[in-house]
Simulated scan of single mutants.
Amino acid sequence: MKRKLIFTAFILMIISGCSKLDTSELKVSKPENEISEEQAKNIPITYEAPSMEIALEALPFDVHLPEELPFDSAPFNLPTIMDVNHDGRTIMLHFMTHDQNNEENILIIEADYPVTEYSVPNSEEVTLANNLTGSYAENTISFLVAEVNYGITYLNEDLTPEQRQEETIDLANQIINKK
């Protein structure tokens, strides 16, 4: 029994050691307002990366972004990377882009890790690629792939709610099919 516990602890140490945010090439983003050290302990550490490649490589998990967007897009902004518990293991990301012809048409993709289950109140269950299900509410779809909870928000008032939902589901399926 003791051997089994030691082996399990060893395996958990290996797994947890491999799944940590690599901050070596990231820069800490200072809060806009002055905060105390005590307040800083209670909010995520926010990081900036010098490039998209470095940002994605720093993560302890894989994130995929859709390549075929429903508008002529500007490149995705460099992500905001948040270390929720200050230990490099619970991460939130935020990507954004917009339509080059209409800056009010915005696409936001959020990724939270690790997540094993989620719920979205007042949402509609939708079927996605690879037999996955998602939750759709207004302009946002949420779904879980390999412990990454994705949220895609697509703001485009030129579309009907049905068209916006269809395009948002297509964006989700692009992410799922890259896994």
Rank of each mutant, 00 (worst) to 15 (best):
M1T: 07
M1F: 11
K2P: 07
I6C: 00
T8A: 12
F10S: 04
F10I: 04
S16D: 03
S16R: 03
S16T: 05
G17F: 07
K20G: 11
D22T: 01
T23I: 03
L26D: 03
V28Q: 09
P31W: 00
P31V: 07
N33L: 15
S36L: 06
E37P: 02
E38W: 05
I43M: 04
P44Q: 02
Y47G: 10
Y47N: 07
A55C: 09
L56T: 04
P60T: 08
D62G: 04
H64M: 09
H64F: 12
P66V: 09
E67W: 06
L69T: 06
P70S: 08
P70A: 10
D72F: 03
A74P: 05
N77F: 09
T80M: 12
I81G: 01
V84K: 14
T90D: 11
N102R: 15
E103R: 15
E110H: 09
P114H: 07
V115M: 06
V115K: 08
V120N: 14
N122T: 05
L128W: 03
N131F: 10
L132C: 08
T133R: 08
T133F: 06
G134C: 14
Y136M: 15
T140W: 12
V145I: 12
Y150K: 03
G151D: 03
T153R: 13
Y154M: 00
E162D: 12
Q163A: 15
R164G: 02
Q165H: 09
E166Y: 11
D170W: 00
L171H: 02
N173V: 12
I176R: 08
I176D: 07
N177A: 00
